[in-house]
Computed example of a mutant assay.
Amino acid sequence: MYLFKRRNDLRHHLEQAKLKGQTIGFVPTMGALHDGHLSLVAAAKEKCDIVVCSIFVNPTQFNDPKDFEKYPITIEQDIVKLTDAGTDVLFLPSVAEMYPEGLASGKHYDFGNLEKVLEGEFRAGHFQGVGRVVHKLLDIVMPHQLFMGQKDFQQCLIIKELIHLLALPVQLVVCPTRREADGLAMSSRNVRLNAAHRQQATDIFKVLTAIRDQFGKVPNSTLSKEAMTQLKKDGFEPEYVEIITLRNGQVTREDAPSADKTVAVVLAAWLGGVRLIDNMILQGQL
């Protein structure tokens, strides 16, 4: 596996590959890798000739400085995992390399209501930071395909909109959420849960499954309210549980959505000082 820390060196390496007619698959991450990330690498290996993975904890997408400080850093273990997974290239830039212009300035992206609801409501500025760093990374790597996980549902919608807004020549491939045997969605933040909270966290999957089983039989708003109540009863501090319908790339809340639209339940909840997010598609596909 090749490791690059400077954008120009990476660009030159990938340009040589493209001259040979090789296709590039890209998996952007913030490190603290788990099997969910590695499943994206595996998907990229199936579809592309060269797999590029990046590890960069992006400061501009953290609305809470304490959350940024607590984000787990496991570079040495990550390199071993990526090597064993057959990753071809790792991009490991510094903040100065990614933001030579500084963190304060930057392009504004018009994501519409997509960045103001759900995660956007509770994490002001988060998706502008996500859009900014992904735009930079795509400009550097210039991949044919971009691989992301469904667990970050709204982020996938944001990146899909980013690609549309900028007419970027890349295909977004959204891969299914990888889960532990007990249903908990794999996440880098899970390592911050103590043993009791780790076991308790599986209640999130139970809530999602209950909504899936009742979807179409009970009004969506009722299902959301009941799920919020259940999470509170189980000891969580839920921020939202919403059943959403996707219309033209934007999010709407409808009790009786059209049969031809994608519908999903998305949620965010705190447990033991750790913020957990998850989702489940109820109808259609992302």
Rank of each mutant, 00 (worst) to 15 (best):
1 M>V: 11
1 M>A: 13
2 Y>M: 01
3 L>F: 02
8 N>V: 10
17 A>N: 08
18 K>A: 10
19 L>S: 03
19 L>Q: 13
24 I>C: 14
25 G>N: 09
30 M>R: 13
31 G>V: 01
33 L>D: 06
34 H>Y: 07
35 D>T: 05
37 H>M: 05
39 S>Y: 10
40 L>G: 03
42 A>K: 13
47 K>A: 07
50 I>D: 08
51 V>T: 15
54 S>A: 12
56 F>W: 09
57 V>L: 05
60 T>N: 07
60 T>R: 13
62 F>A: 04
66 K>I: 00
72 P>E: 06
74 T>W: 09
78 D>F: 02
81 K>W: 10
81 K>Y: 14
85 A>H: 07
89 V>T: 15
90 L>R: 14
90 L>T: 13
91 F>D: 09
91 F>C: 04
92 L>R: 14
95 V>F: 00
96 A>W: 10
96 A>M: 12
99 Y>L: 02
104 A>Y: 13
106 G>H: 01
110 D>M: 06
114 L>E: 14
115 E>V: 14
116 K>T: 10
117 V>Y: 07
119 E>P: 12
123 R>N: 02
123 R>D: 03
126 H>K: 13
127 F>T: 11
130 V>D: 01
132 R>V: 07
134 V>G: 01
139 D>V: 07
142 M>V: 01
144 H>A: 03
144 H>S: 03
144 H>W: 05
150 Q>R: 15
151 K>W: 09
153 F>S: 07
154 Q>L: 08
157 L>Y: 00
157 L>F: 05
157 L>R: 10
157 L>W: 02
158 I>K: 03
159 I>L: 03
159 I>W: 01
162 L>S: 05
164 H>Y: 01
168 L>N: 09
168 L>F: 08
168 L>T: 12
169 P>L: 10
170 V>W: 02
173 V>Q: 07
173 V>N: 07
174 V>E: 05
174 V>K: 02
175 C>W: 10
188 S>V: 14
189 R>A: 01
189 R>Y: 09
190 N>D: 00
190 N>Q: 05
191 V>A: 06
194 N>R: 08
196 A>Q: 00
204 I>P: 05
205 F>G: 10
205 F>I: 10
206 K>M: 09
207 V>F: 14
207 V>P: 07
207 V>W: 12
207 V>Y: 11
211 I>G: 09
212 R>Q: 15
216 G>S: 05
217 K>N: 08
219 P>H: 08
222 T>K: 15
224 S>E: 15
225 K>M: 15
226 E>H: 10
228 M>F: 09
232 K>A: 08
234 D>K: 14
234 D>Q: 15
236 F>K: 13
240 Y>N: 13
240 Y>A: 15
243 I>C: 14
248 N>D: 15
251 V>I: 15
255 D>P: 13
255 D>H: 12
256 A>D: 01
256 A>P: 05
256 A>K: 06
257 P>N: 03
257 P>F: 05
259 A>T: 11
262 T>H: 04
263 V>A: 00
264 A>S: 10
265 V>S: 07
266 V>N: 08
267 L>I: 12
267 L>Q: 11
268 A>E: 11
269 A>Y: 14
269 A>R: 14
270 W>L: 02
271 L>N: 13
274 V>Y: 11
275 R>M: 08
283 Q>H: 00
285 Q>R: 12
